[in-house]
């Protein structure tokens, strides 16, 4: 039996590289993709020596939509699993003043995913197999004043993936939406995160791996987030708009 291949888009992110290690450990070949991908060369050596699987790296720019089709053609093998682990948190206060930055947050988190997953969906449909895993966020479950640019991009991601799952189901293609909650990464290194609600990239990668194995649809890494967000979602808007969240 040939080994399955997993593609990690955004392999330089903490969650991305943790995912590559997690799947490699289980014997999957890994394809690492990111901007300035030459820095992934060492990660490929590392993963290859550690797990004895094939690891390759590719240049991928989520914002350069025209390059996406060619990117997929450049892959040595069309992957069995594609994971979008690209995310930009931005800075709400600054982005409100600079709308161009807001748009870039939306594009990086949402547009990039729509484009590349859209193309993959077509390939997978033709092949009749495949899994798409998108990393969304609990921030997308309801827009809050402190975080709504990033949040709305992730809301888009969640809704898009939900629809994609529905539409690809007849073709045997699975789609997973991951909502990690707080994760200690480079992206959040400047934030003070409450310990009880925060997890780390290794745990996220581990949960995603098991979600893949058991064909889950929507994954909250820490179950408590599911209940927090359910509560936040039922607060009436007239009241919600007055809250500081």
């Amino acid at each position: 039996m040939t080994r399955k291949t997993v593609l990690v888009l955004g392999a330089k992110s903490d969650i991305g590289i943790a995912l590559a290690h997690r799947f490699a450990k289980e014997g999957y070949d890994v394809q690492l993709a990111a901007r300035n991908s030459n820095r992934l060369k060492e990660d490929c050596f590392d993963i290859n020596i550690r797990y004895g699987i094939n690891a390759t790296f590719y240049e991928f720019d989520a914002l350069d939509l025209n390059s996406h089709e060619n990117f997929i053609l450049s892959l040595k093998k069309t992957p069995d699993i594609a994971i979008y682990a690209i995310g930009a948190l931005g800075n709400q206060k600054e982005d409100e003043k600079n709308i161009k930055q807001s748009i870039e947050i939306i594009r990086t988190n949402f547009e990039g995913l729509v484009s590349i997953f859209g193309i993959f969906a077509n390939y997978f449909k033709k092949r009749g197999s495949g899994t798409l895993i998108g990393i969304s966020s609990v921030a997308g479950d309801r827009g809050r004043g402190s975080n709504y640019i990033y949040g709305s991009a992730k809301a888009g991601v969640s809704t898009f993936l939900s629809g994609l799952r529905n539409s690809l189901n007849p073709f045997g293609i699975h789609v997973i939406t991951v909502k990690p909650g707080f994760v200690k990464t480079k992206m959040t290194s400047h934030l003070k995160l409450p310990k009880k609600l925060t997890t780390n990239p290794k745990i996220v990668a581990n949960s995603i791996y098991y979600a893949y194995k058991s064909r889950k649809n929507i994954v909250y890494i820490k179950p408590i987030w599911k209940y927090i967000m359910q509560f936040i979602k039922v607060i009436p808007e007239s009241f919600f708009k007055k809250m500081k969240l």
Binding site: S13, L89, S189, H190
Partner: peptide, 8 residues
């Protein structure tokens, strides 16, 4: 993407 915000 990492934030450039390096607090002391």
């Amino acid at each position: 993407m990492s934030s450039k915000n390096h607090n002391i």
